[in-house]
């Protein structure tokens, strides 16, 4: 049990997927202008990442490994993730329209979110067991959501501030992300 708690803390804070591993930065800057979109994106990522983590782990363990097809990992993982996203989208539209309305526009974007693909690859690289992969996927996704929501909050404040012209928009956002990343740096010694 203790191992899992350490794993969760290390995935959420110490190795935060956005600020320490630099994965999933496109949606990080793209959807963080408003709190609403940031929340939507975070929810969608948690949802998809946990499922993708499980399914890609099974693909690796039951299909690629036994037949020595590891060199097809990249292409098979992206196919699994893309079809999973499509499937989840269709399923939500039919059965849970409320959730679909909330997550809808963010779901297609997730296919090209490197955080999802990245976590699946990390799970394989670290040779996690199924439970560990499941817990790590969830914790990484929570870390993603946490960083995204925090950042969206800061960016909403920047909108009212007076920023020098060349620094406006993306530039100031990057510098702010750097400072946010610095605060996450403080967790380095924890695990």
């Amino acid at each position: 049990m203790g191992d899992y708690i350490v794993l969760i803390i290390s995935c959420i804070f110490v190795n935060n997927i956005l600020l320490a591993q630099f994965l999933g930065n496109c949606p990080f800057f793209g959807t963080s202008k408003k709190m609403e979109t940031a929340m939507g994106m975070s929810m969608a990522v948690v949802f998809v990442l946990v499922m993708a983590g499980m399914i890609t782990w099974m693909t690796e363990a039951y299909i690629l490994k036994p037949y020595n097809l590891e060199y097809l990992r990249t292409i098979s993982f992206i196919l699994v993730i893309a079809s999973l996203v499509q499937f989840v989208e269709m399923f939500l539209r039919k059965s849970i329209p409320g959730l679909y309305a909330g997550l809808g526009i963010f779901l297609p974007l997730i296919t090209t979110n490197c955080a999802v693909m990245g976590v699946c690859l990390i799970n394989i690289k670290e040779e996690y067991s199924f439970m560990q992969a499941l817990v790590a996927s969830f914790a990484y996704a929570v870390g993603f959501g946490l960083a995204l929501v925090l950042f969206a909050g800061v960016r909403e404040k920047i909108l009212i501030a007076r920023v020098p012209k060349p620094l406006q928009d993306t530039s100031i956002a990057l510098v702010t992300a750097g400072i946010l990343s610095l605060t996450f740096f403080a967790f380095k010694g924890m695990v």
Binding site: L19, P166, Q168, T170, L174, V175, G178, I179, S181, L182
Partner: peptide, 22 residues
């Protein structure tokens, strides 16, 4: 060369490009 530096460095380079390239 650490994580936060990457963001700050890219942000400042973007700022310099904006100053010259507008």
């Amino acid at each position: 060369v650490q994580a936060p530096g990457a963001f700050v460095c890219l942000g400042l380079m973007l700022c310099i490009m904006n100053m010259f390239g507008s």
